[in-house]
């Protein structure tokens, strides 16, 4: 009895050992990536959260700020600018994603058909997405210009408007102009993702639908949509997270202005830290953005789990 038990433990141990040495090399491969994530992602996020509870300004940057609890959050949430920035960020994110996905989808349907030079058009569409935002932003700033912008020129020569619109110079249109710009930038990316998902769809279901006499609309709502759903969900969540973090396009096109018409949360956080040197408050804004994005990611995870359960 004893002998066999000892034997089995030894056997177990050696299995463990073998397993360990085998997987050790695998863990070693993970180390560079883990280190990178720890140093450049986890550490800054943790540091940012710590700073958001401190009274850290330029004056005490060298000594480190004192702990002031939730005061930064309370003060920030009460400012008029924060409310405007939050509202603008939400409007911006959802309208950009809405138009990007819909137009992207339509283009994907178009480019999914067989016609000459199809691949050429597919790749040329991506140019808009590959162009650095600095260039796109500057170009659109000129296009929207009130005195010599092409958009105003077209609209006035088509007699759609009488006087040129100062797109970026008035509060009522500035956000719309930035949304149009970013929609233009984001369409190709959405298109390529949706196109890839479409091409992975099995063709036999469509044939079956055809045999059953389904109309185009029925095919779309009963076959294409359910099949595309998982891919679309990922595209939506990635898009929302990516768009929510808007910064460069605002900096280039409007600087958050006129007044606060295009003030968004990431830009507000930047202003607090690097213009007003109020690092604590800026940390609070960054943490709020993080929490919002985490919530969106959680909703996504829940939806995926539900889908898998079904």
């Amino acid at each position: 009895m004893n002998g066999s038990m000892a034997k089995s433990t030894i056997a177990k141990n050696s299995i463990r050992k073998r397993y360990f040495t085998k997987s050790l090399s695998q863990y070693l491969f993970v180390i560079p990536a883990a280190l990178f994530v720890l140093l450049f992602m986890v550490y800054p996020i943790v540091y940012n959260i710590i700073v958001s509870f401190q009274d850290l300004t330029l004056m005490n940057l060298r000594q480190g700020g004192s702990f002031i609890g939730l005061q930064n959050y309370i003060e920030i949430v009460q400012t008029e600018k924060f409310v405007i920035a939050l509202k603008n960020t939400i409007i911006y994110t959802f309208s950009c994603i809405f138009f990007q996905v819909i137009i992207g989808y339509l283009l994907a349907v178009f480019l999914n058909q067989d016609f000459p030079f199809r691949n050429f058009f597919r790749s040329i569409m991506l140019l808009a997405w590959m162009t650095p935002l600095v260039i796109t932003g500057t170009l659109f700033k000129w296009l929207f210009d009130v005195d010599y912008g092409v958009i105003n020129y077209l609209l006035t020569s088509l007699h759609l408007i009488d006087n040129p619109i100062n797109w970026l110079g008035q509060e009522s249109t500035a956000l719309a102009a930035v949304i149009i710009t970013n929609t233009w930038v984001g369409i190709p990316f959405n298109m390529i993702l949706i196109l890839a998902a479409m091409q992975a769809l099995p063709s036999d279901v469509y044939e079956a639908a055809k045999v059953d006499g389904a109309s185009k609309l029925q095919t779309f709502s009963n076959v294409t949509m359910p099949l595309l759903r998982p891919a679309l969900l990922i595209i939506l969540v990635l898009g929302i997270i990516y768009t929510f973090k808007v910064f460069d396009i605002i900096l280039i096109m409007t600087g958050g202005g006129p007044v606060n018409a295009t003030q968004v949360l990431p830009f507000y956080g930047y202003e607090l830290a690097f213009v007003n040197f109020n690092f604590g408050a800026s940390g609070a804004v960054a943490t709020i953005i993080l929490v919002i994005l985490l919530c969106i990611a959680l909703v996504y995870l829940m939806m995926i789990r539900k889908e898998e359960a079904e």
Binding site: G169, G257, N260, E271
Partner: peptide, 17 residues
């Protein structure tokens, strides 16, 4: 710097009417 931010906002508000 923070004072200046407020002045900039004032200019923008006045110039937009």
């Amino acid at each position: 710097p923070e004072i200046s931010t407020n002045v900039q906002e004032a200019i923008q508000r006045a110039m937009t009417g």
